[in-house]
Design a protein around this nucleic acid. Sequence first.
DNA 1: CTCGGCCTGCTC
DNA 2: GAGCAGGCCGAG
Length: 283
Amino acid sequence: MPELPEVETVRRVLSEVLPERTISGVRLRKPKMLKGQASATFIKGLRGRRIRNVGRRAKFLIIRLDRSALLVHLGMSGQIFFESPDSPLPMERVRPDRHTHLILDLDPAARLFFRDPRMFGRFALIDQEEENALFRRLGPEPLGRKFTSRSLGEALRGRRAPLKALLLDQRIAAGMGNIYVDESLHRAGIDPRIPGGELSERMVRRVHAAIRSVLREAVHKGGSSLSDFLDPRHRKGTFQLTLQVYGREGKPCPRCGAPIRKSVVGQRGTHWCPECQPKKRSG
DNA sequence: CTCGGCCTGCTC
DNA sequence: GAGCAGGCCGAG
């Protein structure tokens, strides 16, 4: 499940190999993966274009061409693989399978494969204006300068929804998903069910610091490869080895040994330690 | 704000 | 052979 650290990992690999290559061929095998765009428009807009750079905003990957950009959201199970004579992939990946929805042939010789078994991901060819409009609707990058404990406190003020749900809201901070919210709240020592507006200033500071340190660490470790995440060179991340609560229901909390709890909070499976993450306000 | 729908693969 | 997982969006 690619969240900010996984998408950033993909971006870093692609930004080493894609710039200055030209898209010589486009094979779109699942037009359904396009977001509000006809296949012909999409293919025409890509073919012959030169890749300038690869960016990221929240969980969006943005492959910038001369005037437009290929926007990619990896959804739940999206993968991007890169293959070139210098950087071959393992044999079984070279041949596209039924989950490979888009293939880009590049020049100098290389190929990009977009796979997504669950098909929650999306592609779109967008112009600068559309990019601006999309990104304007997102909250600050949690690792950027605009995300401060003050801005977080303001965003949470008066909110009655559980903190867990608010941190998944991309308008409050953009890029976290279920894994990293649960991990951040464990690091902060705060119960995910507490209404956002009930956090003390001190608790807001702890959540803010925890989010940043968890995400930074996860980026450093190449993301979490829980079930299917692989980077464009087919390498796994290692942050899954560091997870304290996510996917660990009933297992002992690494910090205190109490069994990790799981229930649904804000319509999402939520994991926390009942001892380390007390609900009380001063916490 | 809350809920269902989109999808497939994996677990019960 | 059903149900769950999950990000995001549109409907209620």
